[in-house]
Design a protein around this nucleic acid. Structure first.
Lengths: 199, 199
DNA sequence: GCCCCTATGCTAATGTGATTAGCTACTTTT
DNA sequence: AAAAGTAGCTAATCACATTAGCATAGGGGC
């Protein structure tokens, strides 16, 4: 029996491909499906990953890392309203191109109450924090009072995430152009944040 | 063997209770768990429901119907900004009191491409439309041009849903008061929609 | 009050998926 | 070339959904 030459990264890569090509998205991530792609029996995967939950977190780390990369890339050299609009569009584009990965972006790290958190979960938590920090940096240009910054970051994340989620799950039944509605969301966000900064 | 006296509604009610009390929320809805609560063997449930997916949609119908009821109740007699704030707070409160049901609210009706949609799915779709219509009615008070109404409804739904989702899934890591951030979301929404109406 | 019929419950069996245990053989190290 | 570790395998177990087929409870008709 020849070896398949797998590794943790190789398995994760297969899982990432699967998640974005499966009609079930992130929920379609099963060990059976990954093993089939790898040309290997299901239990063989356990030589490289600890469990399905572990693999899910690996995929989540890839997802958050990529979202962070794109978020950073699109906002460097921009400020204020310009940066916020670019960030919003980039997140929406990421979700459109990688629906499974976008879902994975919401996976929580494993909290081990014994304090023995695994490194992958720590990395995932850190990447998530970094991604939120990008939003904070983008909002610096709005001149919000320090006491309101956390609120503004939450509002921004909520608005963009909510839109992308509803869009991805077919939550918009009307035939009207969704891209236009997203621009309206950005308009509302920009003018609302400007008002919030004045309060 | 005495009969358990089940019915479609009784099974759905048990499922509704389960979904809100299970730590796994809507994902914790399994036939095994429902059967245990009913004091019945798992296959017995099939006398009352068609499948797990069918039961999920039944729960979703209960959830959307209740959300619709509360949304309507809290907005009657209010208008404009007042109505929008009340609606937002009510949806957030519903999600806090019934996390499982709030999740269920996002379940899509079954689309049978043969055109043979079952009545439960039609009812679910109708209830969902009615719920979105409440948002539309609330926004009437903002004097938006007709061409912008759909955008505004989408923006409003996205913002509120996104916030509630992130909050429910522990997406807000900072220790700052989340209720205050939600009020900020409503502030941003109100001032943003007013601006949108002027554009 | 008795019989029949249907609805509601059951057990048994199948399929999918995750996980663990234990075996074997490839590949690298010494 | 032997030793050692690693990466694959099969077999078995567990949870859950689903289907098939059986038994009976309990109400409607006589």
């Amino acid at each position: 029996m020849p070896r398949a030459g797998l590794s943790r990264d190789a398995v994760t890569d297969l899982a990432v491909e699967l998640v974005d090509s499966s009609p079930d998205g992130f929920a379609g991530l099963t060990l059976a499906a990954v093993a089939a792609r790898a040309g290997v029996a299901v239990p063989s995967l356990y030589k490289h990953i600890g469990s399905l939950a572990d693999l899910r977190r690996s995929v989540a780390l890839v997802a958050v890392t990529e979202l962070l990369r794109r978020s950073s890339a699109t906002t460097v050299g921009r400020a204020g309203e310009d940066a916020l609009r670019a960030l919003g569009r980039e997140i929406r584009a990421f979700a459109a191109e990688h629906p499974g990965l976008y879902e994975a972006t919401q996976v929580a790290p494993a909290f081990d109450e014994s304090g023995q958190d695994d490194p992958a979960s720590l990395a995932l938590a850190q990447a998530a924090v970094d991604t939120v920090d990008v939003v904070g940096a983008v909002l610096r240009g709005f001149g919000l009072p320090d006491a309101r910054t956390v609120d503004a970051v939450r509002v921004t994340r909520a608005a963009i995430h909510g839109f992308v989620e509803l869009e991805a799950h077919g939550g918009f039944g009307m035939p009207d152009d969704v891209g236009r509605s997203f621009e309206a969301l950005l308009d509302v966000l920009v003018s609302g944040l400007v008002t919030l900064a004045r309060a």
